[in-house]
């Protein structure tokens, strides 16, 4: 069926090992960063808690799906910069509505077809929509996002689909 989806759920044994290693390194880095002390007792406690967390994560079946599905690249940073600009813009719009003497709302509910995106990209898009004030992802189901918009202009901008194109461009190889 969908190759992107199959790829998502079935990591090979090499990929699984790499996920274990990366997860452990992340935990150790977090411990060292947050404790900032290098006494033997504290380091030993850190090692025990990291081992415990990895054990619990394995028992939970955490590594059965791809853990590090989100891949960082430069284009993701570019997308974040664009998203920041959008957040500022729509925040000003919402602030104007909130501070107006009379609330001028024209709420809309629109449905966006995102079936051409991979599951990870669908999550990125849904979260980006929620993160921008004025638009809110209500439900994500079966390749469709249900979005609630505070103003008709916001809904129109979403249906025009610039954000969708930008999300699709992040992981295009």
């Amino acid at each position: 069926m969908n190759p992107a989806r199959d790829n998502q759920t079935a990591p090979g044994s090499a990929g699984r090992l790499r996920a274990y290693l990366m997860f452990t390194v992340l935990l150790i880095a977090a411990w060292v960063l947050w404790s900032g002390m290098f006494k033997p007792l504290l380091l030993a406690l850190g090692a025990v808690s990291c081992a415990l967390v990895v054990y619990i994560a394995v028992r939970m079946g955490y590594f059965d799906s791809r853990v590090f599905a989100l891949r960082f690249n430069l284009r993701l940073l570019g997308f974040w910069a664009w998203l920041l600009k959008e957040i500022v813009k729509s925040s000003l719009e919402v602030a104007r509505i909130v501070l107006a003497r009379k609330l001028e709302l024209s709420t809309r509910v629109v449905e966006i077809d995102v079936s051409q995106l991979s599951p990870v990209d669908q999550v990125i898009l849904g979260n980006s929509i929620t993160l921008t004030p004025g638009t809110l992802t209500l439900d994500a189901d079966d390749g469709k996002l249900l979005v609630h918009a505070l103003t008709a202009e916001g809904a129109a901008a979403l249906e025009e689909g610039e954000m969708l194109r930008r999300v699709a461009a992040i992981h295009k190889d």
Binding site: I87, V88, S91, V94, A95, I97, V98, L99, L103, L105, T107, T130, L131, T132, P133, G134, T135, L136, L138, H148, L150
Partner: peptide, 26 residues
């Protein structure tokens, strides 16, 4: 502050969530 005012002024749950998202993100 604007998000807080919005969360109090908006008429229903979903519009309030828009106001709350101003404080939560920006």
């Amino acid at each position: 502050l604007i998000g807080g005012i919005g969360a109090l002024r908006m008429p229903d749950l979903f519009t309030r969530m828009h106001a709350a998202s101003v404080t939560d993100s920006l």
